[in-house]
Design a protein around this nucleic acid. Structure first.
Lengths: 127, 127
DNA sequence: TAATATCTGATAATGATTATCATTCTTTAA
DNA sequence: TTAAAGAATGATAATCATTATCAGATATTA
């Protein structure tokens, strides 16, 4: 795994500070606001690297990538329309019962348990 | 829930026939290839409707939305790099052990159990 | 130190998605 | 049925997040 560089450290810092998912543009603006000089391309490039390292997570809302730290909390109810994502106060073990969430004014259509990582070919591709 | 129209029926048919996730552009091309006349905008509009109805699922790979029918199989290993998504031969109950997938030449970084649907405000917003 | 490889910033290019708007198809009510 | 109101469609222009390019800066290696 490559050593985290300065740009990546700045990105991680911003995500830690704001404590909420941000778009690439927002991250870019925030780093600049903090006095660091950085280009958009660099932000995108390093977000990609951080993703491949498994340090940040990405989801897409309204055709825009939203980045966040990979945290312990991984159970959410995501609205298909507005994209709002509210944490579920349940553990992974309990979450198999998630569809009972119906009672919480959230209309469940489907749920997904997804494992993210690198497949074998891609592991070789990025040493 | 609105009655499914002709365009939506065509989209669903294509997804059923090809049995694999497709981009909007691919769906558009396929419907046209089958002799139906349809505009891109219509494809996008109806994909959105089908999403809100919970009939199709979306994920984003390389900055492009990929659509698929909401199926029974909801356990996948997704590669962070190439986006390849291979079904896991495990049930939801078993899947809490998914991290043991390590042994399968897939390097697991994190996993997510996500529930998709409509939040309360959005339910009222789209009758 | 010099040579090589990697990273960066500015900016142009790309391309998927969305907005616009005139037209066509549907539904509703008299 | 028929006319008015509403919704859906298609063609195309506009948007805008992301990516490619490339010259210069920085880091690494021998």
């Amino acid at each position: 795994m490559k050593t985290p560089n300065h740009s990546q450290a700045n990105i991680l810092k911003v995500l830690e500070q704001t404590k909420k998912p941000l778009s690439a543009q927002e991250i870019w603006a925030e780093i600049q606001k903090q006095g660091q000089k950085i280009g958009v391309a660099t932000v995108y490039r390093n977000l990609e690297s951080l993703k491949i390292k498994g340090l940040i997570q990405i989801r897409t809302v309204h055709n825009q990538a939203i980045y966040s730290l990979v945290s312990e909390k991984q159970n959410f109810a995501t609205c298909l329309q507005c994209g709002e994502r509210t944490p579920l106060g349940i553990s992974l073990a309990q979450s198999v019962e998630a569809p009972t969430l119906q009672s919480q004014a959230f209309e469940v259509y489907y749920h997904t348990l997804e494992v993210f990582g690198l497949c074998s070919p891609c592991q070789e591709r990025s040493p």
